[in-house]
Amino acid sequence: MDLELTSDQRAIHDAIVQMVSNHMDVPRSGATLKPVEYCYADQLDRDLAEGEFFSLALTEGCGALEAALLVYETGRSPLVLETAGAAFIGPLLTGRDLPRPVAVARLEDLTRAVRFLDRARTLIVDLGDDVAVLSTDGLAVEPIHSMFAYPLGRLMTLPDFTAAERLGAAAVPRLRRLWRVGLALETAAALQAAVDFTTAYVKDRLVFGRPVGSYQAVQHRLSADIQRVRAVYWLALKAAWSGGDQDAALAALYAQQAITPINYDTHQFNGALGMTLEHTLHFWTFRLRLLQGEMGGARTQAAATVAATWAGA
């Protein structure tokens, strides 16, 4: 076992981190943020594409773990970028790069609200007994405005799936496995960013003449939170590495369950300022609120975990 990145992985990781760090600025009005729902990282998208980072999963010598690093590191930015579908789920599911952004959804969610669907060029749908991959050209997509810091959209009418590329029943568990890992990676990134942001804030913000972060009531909760965050990170990376059903379900379950306490704590510790759009926190925490229910939420991941672990026992 070796939990360090290899030198090649380190080089890829560092290059991604460098690119992401060049694109952390959110639009401002003077000293404060512009009150926007979300900021899409269009320039980062172009830079990563130019470096062929979206193809890491299918690049010789690379694979799921390298693609996972991309999903995780881009997810730490307050700017939002679709990488889980385009760089991880799509290529590993289909064996090819798909036009991006890539939206991934369950059939029953298509007419409700789907992350990235209003921008997506490819849509992957879990039909229950099959997987459909289709271009969004010609689909009737309605953008949805929300507080959830993601571009969202929904289909006005369901497409004719018989005309779409179908991957077959065997692709269903594969899609769900990859989707769970992608979900865990995106969650790990947003959780880490929210806790990092809050940790920095409570070191500086004074209350009753002392930093907020000097109170044990705050310290213990943030400490428990960072334990959860690190666990999500490692569970997600292991799941990306192994490609196993159990690892994927565990990672997604732990990730979605970590969201409630961490969202609560980070907002409590940022106080009223954390509720304003001039503060960056919501770019992560409100993404997390949407991730919390993806794929049916923790209830579904728990069932998948049990099935992968004890079905035959």
Partner: peptide, 29 residues
């Protein structure tokens, strides 16, 4: 075993054991 509430608790506990395992492995590494 088939009770969904029980299964949710089992899965949550399993996730906790595997989280602790990996975090321990980080130290051992």
């Amino acid at each position: 075993f088939d009770d969904p509430t029980v299964q949710a608790e089992l899965a949550t506990a399993l996730a906790a054991t595997e989280a602790a395992r990996l975090l321990t492995y980080v130290v051992i590494d």
